[in-house]
């Protein structure tokens, strides 16, 4: 099953770490709002980089 990163907004501290490591520019930080775009391929690098554990992979 293909996967995609999802953010738990209650945990996200909007630091931009996930934006920095995304090869596809799928993560965008709009002020304090993290947007994960449809081109996310579920590689999971941002999930492992997030200091807060706010990201996870979900089957789509």
């Amino acid at each position: 099953m293909p996967k995609k990163a999802v953010v738990d907004r209650r945990k996200c501290a909007y630091c931009g770490a996930c934006v920095a490591v995304c090869n596809l520019n799928a993560n965008e930080l709009i002020e304090t709002y993290l947007e994960i775009k449809d081109n996310c391929n579920g590689c999971g690098i941002c999930v492992r980089t997030c200091p807060m554990g706010a990201l996870s992979l979900m089957e789509v």
């Binding site: 931009g16 770490a17 490591v21 690098i45 980089t49 997030c50």
Partner: peptide, 25 residues
């Protein structure tokens, strides 16, 4: 900043690998 779009769009820098970034709290 670390999430620079300009650097990547301009082709100056490559996206950081997980071994090239400190995740901090």
């Amino acid at each position: 900043g670390v999430e620079s779009r300009i650097g990547r769009e301009a082709g100056i820098i490559k996206t950081l690998k997980m071994s090239e970034i400190e995740s901090c709290a």
